[in-house]
């Protein structure tokens, strides 16, 4: 079942007198249960792609469809709602709020839910247990290692039971051993049926996924 579809999407930024073509004619579909890597060197346009996927940005041309709804038809507030309720974000720099406890960080998306579930705390605990961080619920992010922080960030992405998880270089700030455990976690989450899109420049990371979309100079070079 289709979740996200890109239909000849272009993204151009004005830069000085000229225009930068960050993304040209990108077309692909992400279906339920997919584990996709978007692979490309830095400057290839994969970050632009990621922002479009996460509704943080709008395309210059073409159509982005989420659950068959065209992005242009969705208001800013509704996009925020979709981000809060249907998309889980994982960032390279973890992006936890430093003054909040692990529990508070993981619970944050539920605060922006249009009707927060009554069992919110239970769901946060379950998500933290799933990533193996339930024993650190009352710690502050500063007291955790990089790998632990990324697990908390993943718990945060899971807490709303999203349709799709977007991970932007989730292992970029981690040593290779920790990175491997995080990738295992993603694989496990995918086996449980979760849809995951992973953006990376590292072919070794991309290898772990089921499907790779190669981006180069703003174009989708090939899909494998």
């Amino acid at each position: 079942m289709e979740i996200l579809r890109f239909d000849n999407v272009c993204k151009r930024y004005p830069m000085g007198d000229g225009v930068v073509n960050a993304l040209v004619d990108a077309s692909f579909t992400i279906n339920e249960g997919d584990f996709v890597a978007i692979l490309g060197p830095s400057g290839s346009g994969k970050s632009t792609l990621m922002h479009l996927l996460g509704f943080l940005d709008s395309p210059t041309e073409g159509g982005v469809y989420f659950e068959n709804r065209r992005l242009e038809d969705i208001s800013g507030t509704q996009r925020a709602r979709i981000r809060a309720e249907k998309i889980g974000f994982v960032f390279q720099a973890f992006n936890l709020l430093p003054r909040m406890s692990v529990f508070g960080n993981a619970k944050l998306p539920l605060a922006y839910h249009s009707n927060p579930p009554p069992d919110a705390d239970e769901r946060v605990r379950k998500a933290l247990a799933l990533v193996g961080m339930d024993h650190r619920a009352n710690h502050k992010p500063g007291e955790l290692s990089g790998g632990q922080r990324q697990r908390v960030a993943i718990a945060r992405a899971l807490v709303n039971e999203p349709r799709i998880i977007l991970a932007d270089e989730p292992t970029g700030n981690l040593d290779s051993k920790t990175a491997a455990t995080i990738l295992e976690l993603f694989e496990e989450l995918n086996r449980q049926g979760r849809t995951i899109v992973l953006v990376t420049h590292d072919p070794k990371v991309a290898e772990r996924t089921k499907r790779q979309i190669h981006v180069l100079d703003g174009r989708i070079a090939r899909e494998t």
């Binding site: 996460g54 507030t77 809060a84 309720e85 992006n95 998306p109 945060r156 709303n160």
Partner: peptide
């Protein structure tokens, strides 16, 4: 700024 960015990325509206 970063905190605001994070909050927005995970679903906070401008109004929030």
């Amino acid at each position: 700024v970063r905190e605001i960015g994070i909050r927005k990325a995970i679903g906070a509206t401008g109004r929030n």
